[in-house]
């Protein structure tokens, strides 16, 4: 009897979201009870923020124009790692030497600092992320144009 009632409730897809929310809430409750998780000190992608650096939010360490020392999972797969962050246009480099505000404009400069992790060592993630966006745009544009000739 009770199984019949449960299966009738589950079979209505209007109830899916509440069931999923309840499952998430139960699991989150268990997670909170099992806190604290022990975090490892030896992180793969460490990040230190140096507020004094002129490249502030984008500074990943290492002087420009030379290879920076970057922690990688498989260094042998990314021989050029460390050079992406090091690259600044001469104008950006001059700006960084004179002001403290290159960090706010640096992504607007051609050849400015690209994120080492996203564009070098974890490039496949970036590809898949943009694919998700493109697929979503394709669906949205198809539905939008459906009625028109």
């Amino acid at each position: 009897m009770i199984i019949q009632r449960i299966s009738r409730f589950i079979s209505n897809f209007e109830n899916l979201m509440p069931i999923f929310a309840a499952a998430c809430a139960v699991l989150a409750g268990i997670a909170i009870l099992s806190l604290p998780f022990v975090y490892t000190e030896d992180q793969l992608y460490p990040k230190n923020i140096d507020r004094e650096s002129p490249l502030d939010p984008y500074d990943r360490g290492g002087p420009p124009f030379t290879q920076a020392d970057i922690v990688l999972q498989y260094p042998e797969n990314s021989p050029t790692a460390g050079f992406v962050t090091a690259y600044l246009t001469p104008f950006s480099w001059a700006l960084a030497n004179t002001t403290l505000h290159t960090g706010t404009t640096i992504v607007g400069h051609p050849g400015g600092i690209l994120d080492e992790i996203l564009y070098n060592t974890r490039g496949l993630d970036t590809v898949v992320e943009t694919t998700i966006l493109f697929i979503a745009f394709a669906i949205a544009s198809y539905i939008f144009r459906k009625g028109s000739p």
Partner: peptide, 24 residues
Amino acid sequence: AATTGTLSLIELSSTLLPAVPLVV
């Protein structure tokens, strides 16, 4: 990533790393 320090499944299969909590 926080509890083990890596995301690679090949590294995660080794026993040297700390175990991932069951709830995760």
